[in-house]
Simulated scan of single mutants.
Amino acid sequence: MQRNTRQRAAILETLSQLDDFRSAQQIHEQMRTDGETVGLATVYRTLQALSTAGRLDVLVAADGESLYRQCEDSGHHHHLVCRECGKTVEITDPSLEAAMSAIAREHGFTDLDHTLEVFGLCAEHAATATAEVTQAAKDGAAADGGPRA
């Protein structure tokens, strides 16, 4: 049974205002900016307890650091995560779950538990990346003397 403390309530309030995954240090810094006085160790312990209780999503970054986000969907779900800005979309797809079960059965696995994080570029950053590639191509053509016949 988790106690409802002022610190826990403050951490949950901070998380409710964030829409992407954040590290414990980033959450702690946001709380300090907001005027909350909660120790970093308390933030770490509370995030761990909340994630164990299923109230937070946890994503392990490429460098091994745990990142946290408050769940929008209390049921089983997965995430699409933008590599540039961290924007996260929760996805629930019965056909994906059926595919995962079929793959597991094919290999003799039972009692499944899984998480799936799909990384890519959100629409905004995909448009920016496309514009940058187009501009780079134009700049390269101009440096070469323009298009050749």
Rank of each mutant, 00 (worst) to 15 (best):
residue 22 R to I: 05
residue 43 V to Q: 10
residue 42 T to H: 05
residue 41 A to L: 13
residue 27 I to D: 02
residue 52 T to I: 11
residue 25 Q to A: 15
residue 24 A to K: 10
residue 24 A to I: 07
residue 31 M to Q: 11
residue 45 R to S: 11
residue 25 Q to N: 12
residue 38 V to R: 00
residue 34 D to M: 11
residue 34 D to E: 11
residue 43 V to I: 10
residue 30 Q to W: 00
residue 22 R to G: 07
residue 57 D to K: 14
residue 57 D to C: 13
residue 43 V to H: 01
residue 33 T to V: 08
residue 46 T to K: 05
residue 61 A to F: 03
residue 32 R to P: 03
residue 50 L to C: 11
residue 40 L to W: 01
residue 29 E to N: 13
residue 59 L to E: 01
residue 29 E to W: 12
residue 23 S to K: 12
residue 53 A to M: 01
residue 55 R to L: 08
residue 25 Q to Y: 15
residue 27 I to V: 14
residue 44 Y to F: 12
residue 32 R to A: 03
residue 27 I to W: 04
residue 60 V to Y: 03
residue 59 L to G: 00
residue 23 S to E: 03
residue 58 V to S: 04
residue 29 E to P: 04
residue 41 A to V: 13
residue 32 R to C: 04
residue 49 A to N: 06
residue 54 G to N: 09
residue 43 V to P: 11
residue 40 L to I: 11
residue 27 I to E: 02
residue 48 Q to H: 10
residue 61 A to V: 02
residue 31 M to H: 09
residue 49 A to E: 08
residue 32 R to Y: 10
residue 37 T to Q: 13
residue 44 Y to E: 09
residue 58 V to R: 14
residue 39 G to A: 15
residue 30 Q to M: 03
residue 54 G to F: 11
residue 39 G to C: 09
residue 44 Y to A: 05
residue 33 T to F: 00
residue 60 V to H: 10
residue 46 T to C: 02
residue 56 L to W: 11
residue 25 Q to I: 12
residue 34 D to G: 08
residue 44 Y to P: 00
residue 39 G to Q: 12
residue 52 T to Q: 15
residue 58 V to D: 02
residue 57 D to M: 13
residue 37 T to S: 08
residue 22 R to E: 00
residue 58 V to T: 15
residue 33 T to R: 06
residue 53 A to W: 01
residue 55 R to G: 01
residue 57 D to Y: 14
